[in-house]
Structures are given as structure tokens and as C-alpha cells.
């Protein structure tokens, strides 16, 4: 014997009108069984579109906001917070401008000019904070042993490159940037946390030899 509740529900549902659906699509699939279901292409199409959009948005978001050009002073640019900058070793970071051969009169002018240290990073030129390297002292001319000998200068350069060779910076993934899922506190050093250490020692540079 049917339950009273069930009977009431059944009577109400029998009165329901037919619900519209993709009748033509269903009939086409009944006629041609090989015809794929809408789901078969709708789902991959949706996933594919979402993936393409995700990659596109991620690519756009991942673009650095500053560009270093030849005309832009490097020191005015802070490194992009999302990029990992490798601070090279002392030997690599010594900036030696090729073919710098200057007369004695030009030396004071050179010494007073602002030093713009350029560090070579993984893929492009990056600037260090201005405090990283002290201005180079005035090179002193070395007395010639013989009048025909080439003019020589010597200078002591104090480098303040930190001992740490690689400073991993906070790098958010594209997905984390998109969905703000990167909730874990990042304890790694960031540029804001970076402080120029005190002088770690003195390095005597090779003298620049002037040949006539």
C-alpha cells in the first residue's frame, strides 16, 4: 500500500509540464550514435579556453613594471620584486670599463663622477642599491722607473659586496598571483629587508696601464 506522503508527491509531479531540453541535439544523437555528446566537446572546450585565458592573464601580470634602457639611470630602478636576482661574486662584479685611458688632469673629474655599479644578473642588467659600493678613491700615479715607461696609476677600491652570493627573492607563481592563494608567510629575504653590510675588506685592483 503506497504511503500517503508518496502518493501526494506523485500526484503533484504528474501535473508537471514537460521540461524543455535540447530535443534536436538528442534526436540527432539517437539517429547517429557515433555523434558525440555535447559534453564531450563542451568540457574540453571550456577547460582549454580557461587554460588559454589563464596563461594569457598570467603572462600579462608577470611582465616587469619597469624597463631598463640605455638612457635610463640604472640606480633609479629597483629590482622587480618578483624576480630572483643573483648577486655575483666579487671578481665578477668588479666593473671595469674597457679602454679607460685618461690623463692625470682627467682623474679628479673621474673620481668625483657618480659611480654607477652594474651587476650582471641571470638574464639582464640589474642595479644594486647605491649604498652597495663606495666611490672609488683617486688613483695615484706610480713613479716611473724610466722616462720611456708607460704612465701607471694605482688605486685602492673598497668593495662592499656582501658575502652572500645568491639572495633568493620572493617569487610568486602565476597561479598564486591569479588566485591569491599564496597565503604562506615568506620568510626569505626581500629587497626591502636587504641592508648593505659594512665593508668586508679591501681589494687592491689591478693598475690601469697607460701605453703610448
Amino acid at each position: 500500500m503506497p504511503h500517503t506522503f508518496d502518493e501526494h508527491i506523485r500526484q503533484r509531479l504528474e501535473a508537471l509540464p514537460e521540461e524543455p531540453f535540447h530535443s534536436e541535439d538528442v534526436w540527432n544523437r539517437i539517429e547517429r550514435p557515433s555523434r558525440p555528446s555535447r559534453r564531450r566537446w563542451l568540457v574540453p572546450l571550456g577547460v582549454g579556453t580557461a587554460a588559454v585565458l589563464g596563461i594569457l592573464v598570467g603572462y600579462l601580470l608577470h611582465q616587469p613594471t619597469t624597463e631598463v634602457t640605455k638612457t635610463t639611470p640604472l640606480l633609479s630602478k629597483a629590482p622587480d620584486s618578483s624576480s630572483s636576482v643573483r648577486i655575483p661574486s666579487v671578481n665578477d662584479s668588479v666593473f671595469v670599463q674597457p679602454n679607460v685611458v685618461r690623463s692625470e688632469k682627467q682623474v679628479p673629474l673621474l673620481a668625483s663622477a657618480p659611480v654607477e655599479p652594474v651587476l650582471v644578473t641571470d638574464s639582464s642588467l640589474r642595479a644594486m642599491p647605491a649604498v652597495a659600493i663606495q666611490p672609488t678613491p683617486i688613483p695615484e700615479p706610480v713613479p716611473r722607473a724610466h722616462p720611456a715607461e708607460a704612465e701607471t696609476f694605482e688605486a685602492t677600491v673598497t668593495l662592499t659586496i656582501p658575502e652572500t652570493q645568491t639572495v633568493p627573492l620572493r617569487k610568486k607563481s602565476i597561479l598564486a598571483r591569479l588566485f591569491r592563494a599564496d597565503k604562506r608567510p615568506d620568510t626569505r629575504l626581500r629587497w626591502q629587508d636587504f641592508q648593505a653590510p659594512t665593508s668586508v675588506g679591501k681589494v687592491k685592483t689591478d693598475s690601469i696601464k697607460h701605453t703610448h
Binding site: 535540447h22 541535439d25 538528442v26 555528446s37 555535447r38 559534453r39
Partner: peptide, 14 residues
Amino acid sequence: DRMEAEDRLVSTFQ
């Protein structure tokens, strides 16, 4: 799910 219901309708009529 509507699409699943449609799938069952196809197999039923076949």
C-alpha cells in the same frame, strides 16, 4: 545534471 539526463535519453530511445 541536465546533460547526463540527455545522455540517458539518447541511450533509452536507442
